[in-house]
Computed example of a mutant assay.
Amino acid sequence: MLSSRGLQLQLLACSVLLLLLFQASNAKKDLKSACSTCQQITENFNKGFDRTAKQNFGGGNTAWEERKLSKYETSEIRLVEILEDVCESSSFECNRMVEEHEEHFETWWFKKKTKHPDLHKWFCIDTIKVCCPKGTFGPDCNSCIGGSERPCHGNGACDGDGTRGGSGKCSCDPSYKGELCLDCVDGYFSEVRNDTFSLCAECHASCKTCTGATNEDCGECKEGWEDNEACVDVNECAKEPSPCKEDQYCLNSEGSYSCIACDDACSGCTGAGSDQCQACAEGYQDVEGTCTDINECSQSEPACLKEHQECINNKGSFICICSSGFEEKDGECVQQNDATEESEASQTISDPHREL
């Protein structure tokens, strides 16, 4: 058994390892984040440069100021005005980077701008080295898989592309897979393929895998299709018993089917509508092949059997209500008393929109 001291040492070693892994993970994130911040700074700097292109010192005698104080176009005042607007006040990382490298901006502005007009390349890539040229990654700006001109052979994204972080591994586009993003995923086939280029095209809708564009080129059929010298649709609705419930009808579609509720007039059906019933539901009758509502209230035998009741027909059924001047009590329709009538009359006068 481990002693208490040995157990403590093991726990400490695990904690140190976890901390190192956490720090390494954060370091990679920080490298990508630093490049993103620098990119934003240089983009905003260029916007500020364009915005101030036609400005001047703003004083009363611009000609004298430009002659004596140097031109606004290349002045320190213009540089300061541009730098003031490159960061949001709430962006700590952006403001920290600008403050930390203020001297570099001055050097580029006064000495390097003409020879190195691309501020992002000069500042972010070559000087403070938080970014890499497009198509490269990592501390040494190594080429992404597939080469810097076409990272991941044009079929994916290189992890860390353009930054000093990342692994350089490819995250392939949806149609592609493999370390080089040259292979096709299931449902696609290589229309064109060589060592450096691959074009994946979609298989026929019936194919799970394929070698070409038609249903005859399937390697394996998708569910809902069957191999009959080509992948053809399975008509699930032709199967016995039906895959649908008794109160539903089956509608076949390519590679699948749907179960749809029968019309209310039907007791079982073969399709949509009251003319596709296998039998009529209770309260309906067959009239020239269509299940039609029975008007129970118009039958020779009265539907409502209690005294002072009226019959109201509705689809597939009917209801019995008390006639005007009567109210239901204990399941019987009894005449309303004078007090009730006077009360209702009074409410009707005070609220003419009240339903009777």
Rank of each mutant, 00 (worst) to 15 (best):
D263R: 09
L180G: 06
S267I: 08
E66T: 05
I128Q: 01
S258N: 11
P352K: 04
N295L: 08
G146E: 02
D161V: 00
C304Q: 08
I145M: 10
K32D: 02
M1Q: 15
E149R: 14
S171F: 14
R164L: 02
V86W: 02
N142F: 02
C14K: 13
C14D: 12
S90K: 13
L199Y: 09
T196K: 14
E307R: 14
D186K: 09
D85S: 12
Q276D: 03
P133H: 00
C277E: 02
E342H: 13
D85H: 14
E341Q: 15
I349V: 12
E310C: 11
W109R: 01
C207N: 00
E236P: 06
E66A: 10
C170D: 06
A265C: 04
Q309A: 06
C200G: 03
C311S: 09
Q347Y: 15
E100G: 03
A157F: 12
D50F: 12
S3L: 01
C250T: 11
Q285M: 14
D173K: 13
R51C: 13
N56I: 04
H153N: 11
Y249G: 06
Q55G: 10
A13Y: 07
Y72W: 08
A272S: 15
Y72L: 07
A261H: 07
E332C: 06
T348E: 14
T209A: 13
G135P: 01
S258C: 07
D330T: 08
S167F: 07
I312T: 08
I321E: 12
N313I: 04
H353S: 09
G166Q: 03
S90T: 09
Y257V: 06
G255P: 08
L20D: 09
K329Y: 08
R96D: 04
S148A: 10
H120V: 04
T127Q: 06
E296F: 14
I77H: 14
E88M: 10
E341C: 14
A261W: 06
L7R: 12
G289T: 03
S148R: 10
W122K: 02
C181P: 04
Q335R: 08
W108A: 03
C38R: 00
G289P: 03
F189P: 05
C304Y: 10
E328S: 09
P174Y: 07
V98P: 01
S175C: 13
S343M: 11
Q8A: 15
I128R: 01
N252R: 10
A279C: 05
D233C: 12
E93V: 01
K129A: 01
E301Y: 05
S33C: 00
I319M: 11
K129V: 00
F197Y: 11
T127P: 01
C210T: 03
D186R: 06
N194I: 13
C131L: 01
P243L: 10
H104T: 05
C87A: 07
S253W: 10
N215G: 05
C304P: 07
K222F: 05
